[in-house]
Structures are given as C-alpha cells and as structure tokens.
Simulated assay, not measured.
Amino acid sequence: MQFRTLGKTGFSISEISLGTWQVGGKWGDPFSHENADHILNAAADAGINFIDTADVYGDGESEKAVGRLVRSRSERIYVATKCGRRLQPHVNEAYQPAALRKFVDDSLRNMGLETLDLIQLHCPPTEAYYRPELFDVFDRLKDEGKIQNLGVSVEKVEEALKAIEYPNVTTVQIIFNLFRQRPAELFFTEAKRRNIGVIVRVPLASGLLTGKFDQNTIFSQDDHRTFNRQGDAFDKGETFSGVDYETGLAAVNELKTVFPNGLAVDALRWILTFDAVSCVIPGASKPEHLIANIQAADRPAPSPEQMAAVKKIYDERIKNPVHYLW
C-alpha cells in the first residue's frame, strides 16, 4: 500500500481507502453488521487506514460498525464521518450551529469514540458555504476535543473553492473520475496551493466504470441507480456521476479499448496520477471488491497515449452534458 498526506491534517493515509455507503450490503439492501465487519477488517488487513462514513449511512449503523473496527484494532485507523444530511428538509435554513453540534455528539456516541479525526459537512446547499457561523462552530468543537479536523463533502467545484477559503477547512471530498474531470482544473491547483487534502468519491461512477453493466442490467427498486437517475432523491451527480446511462455505456465501450486489462482498476489508477489527490474511496459490498480496488495502487500509470485517448472520449461524449453542471 502507498500512502499520501491528507493536506493540513498531516495524516499519512492509504491512497486507496474505503468508502462505506454500501459496506453493510449492496445499495438498497438492509444493513448487515456481519458483512460490514468482514469488509472493514479485510480493509485493515490489507493496509487501508482511512475509512469514510456518514451518520446517514445505514441510519447510523455504518458509523457503529466503523467505530467497532477502530476500537478492536491495534493499528492507527483514521475515521472521517459526515453531518448535515439528516436535516429534514435538507435546506440552507435548517443548517444551524446547534444542529451541527448535536450531529457531532451523535456520531461520537455511535462510534464509541472520544474525538473524530475528521468531520465533514455532508453536501450542504450552496448557500451554506457563504455562512461563516456554520464553519466557526467547528472551531469550538475542536477546542472541546470533540473533533480534530473539519472538511467538506461537495457536489460542485464552486462549493469546493468557496469552502477552502475558510482557514479551518482541511479537506474536500469531491466526485472525480473518468466521467467527471472538471476538478482537475482550477480546484486541484487551489487545493495544492492551500495544502487541502482531496478525498475522491464515486471514483467508478456508481459502478458504471467497472465495465460490467449493459443495457440489460437491472438494479433493484431501492437502489439509487434506479430511482435517482434524474435527481429525484438527491443530487443527480451522485448517480453515475450525472452521466446519462446510455451515453455512459457507449463511453465505457470506448474506454475498454484504451484500458484492455481491466477498466475498473485502471480507472482508479488514472485518478491517482493527479498529485493533488490524497486518496480515493471506492466502496465495497464484499471483500472481493476491496481486494480488486487495492490492485490499482500497483498498476502502472497510464501512458501519454492513454491519457490523450481518455481526454478525447471525455471531450466528445461526456464534457458538454456534464462538465459545466458540477
């Protein structure tokens, strides 16, 4: 396993880490603590030392599983969780310092920990990034020892650029993959300049970039890849990175010719070619997925010809409908 520094936190973290949106089972399935324990311990056994979770994953059950892992292992495992998505309705006005403080306390209780390595605002509405009082409350929480670092999880590059203007923001979690390349422009430049840790989520575009889906693939009714394709439940960009499914399949077929030795692993390795990236957090609903993802760290970097071919596919098929929205 290779390690990179997570920006101003100073944490040395595994460049292939783990996201836990689906770690208790596949999307839409009931949360399974047995499955979660199996995957989380397999991750630690493989050298992964950074786990990303959220209070809404499995309605708090994911946090409980992650906390159980941290308390049961001798290795230093860094934990990032998120807060804010439990607000109903999820609107700017609902974001209040008292509510955020309660979410931090709830996460500490769920995980059985005394302090959070990293707490992230969980994709708040754009207006919230323009309210300093929401960021100030985390300075108080740090003084109290409840958190060590503040980060943000964003939907848009605009939000990322605004967030890192706040001195106490140490990390940004953002969607970046073969289908979502805009962060590599201004945001990555500014993140490096300000020593911001960059956590890449949705690296395989909700599985589309595994190359295993086709026109006949059926997802369960409880899977966001069924019900959120048009953004009916949450931001459309979280599902297939905002790419139209048929358009994505056509692009994947071309990408398979560029990366004939396994698209998923090479798609992860492509992300790691950008030195602004601190880590990538693919999910896993079974240990086999985890082991496959880890192989990306040892994959040779894409050749200049492959990089050029990726850009051509993106420019011709993906850029116009996606690039300017997020």
Rank of each mutant, 00 (worst) to 15 (best):
D29N: 09
P30C: 07
P30A: 00
P30H: 05
P30Y: 04
F31M: 12
S32E: 15
S32W: 04
H33W: 11
E34N: 11
E34C: 06
N35P: 07
N35L: 14
A36V: 06
A36S: 10
A36F: 04
A36P: 14
A36K: 03
D37A: 15
D37V: 07
D37Y: 11
I39S: 06
L40C: 10
N41K: 02
N41W: 00
A42R: 01
A43F: 01
A44L: 00
A44H: 14
A44E: 12
D45T: 00
D45W: 01
D45M: 01
A46T: 09
A46W: 00
A46L: 11
A46P: 08
G47A: 02
G47D: 04
I48N: 01
I48W: 01
I48V: 15
I48A: 01
N49E: 06
N49A: 01
N49I: 02
N49S: 03
N49D: 09
F50V: 02
F50K: 01
D52L: 00
T53G: 10
D55L: 05
D55T: 05
D55W: 00
V56L: 13
G58F: 05
G58Y: 03
G58C: 12
G60W: 04
G60A: 04
G60M: 05
E61V: 08
S62L: 08
S62A: 15
A65H: 02
V66P: 15
R68M: 09
S72A: 15
R73S: 12
S74D: 15
S74M: 12
E75Q: 07
E75R: 00
E75L: 02
E75N: 08
R76D: 13
I77Y: 00
I77M: 03
I77D: 05
Y78T: 13
Y78W: 10
V79H: 05
A80H: 07
A80Q: 14
T81F: 07
T81Q: 08
K82V: 12
K82N: 12
Q88Y: 12
Q88P: 02
Q88C: 08
Q88R: 13
P89W: 03
H90C: 08
N92I: 03
N92L: 05
N92P: 03
N92K: 11
E93H: 04
E93L: 09
A94H: 13
A94I: 05
A94T: 15
A94W: 06
